[in-house]
Amino acid sequence: MSARANILARIRTAQGRAVTGHSEEREAVAQYIAAHPQGPRPQVDADIEARFRDRALNLSTTIDTVTTVADIPAAVARYLRDLNLVSTAVCWPEFAGLDWAAQGLRVEVRSAGGDDLVGITGAFCAIAETGTLMMCSGPDTPPATSLLPETHIAVVSRNRIVTGMEDGWALLRRERDALPRAVNFISGPSRTADIEQTVTLGAHGPYRVHLLLLP
């Protein structure tokens, strides 16, 4: 007998269920998955943008607003300059066409490596309940760009802010056939409290997460 068969048989025997022939149970499981009911959800104010901002700021994320996509390079340049950060970055392909050079920035369109200091990404959507970004991996949305650099700048459209994580999954079910390899929920800069329970930002991932909100 294989380990698999042994373990599954032990479970069924211990619970007093016949070891073979459980098509009814399979059917019930399939039905539950097809229905995937939501659990009870906490109340979240109707103004989900305000809620998103409030929670994101609480998580040490910073937020700026831009009126058009073309304004992104200026906003990025301003942010980096104000914090005395480098003027080089890597970005996702969706921002390849922007005029970065006009703002004195050198931005390469590729996935981030270990030495890149600034990563610019979009987001699949944003979750108001917790101030969280939902990111889906793909050829044009490499996860490393939001992870390896010390500064992560994410561009999010206001109309992609949803109330809770359930709404993020619903959006994903609606827009895609299946889950991508990785769905990453990001809630502020990376942190640790392992030494004396003192919260310190920038453990292995970014020290800073900065959002640019588009209309």
Binding site: R55, L59, R110, S111, T130, G131, T132, S137, G138, P139, P142, P143, A144, A178, L179, P180, R181, A182, V183, N184, F185, I186, S187, G188, P189, S190, R191, G205
Partner: peptide
Amino acid sequence: SITNYISVTTGPRRAGDLDG
């Protein structure tokens, strides 16, 4: 309220993926 990173991973790297 939420952990910094929640990562849901499904299978290995897909065609065209740059990482994973």
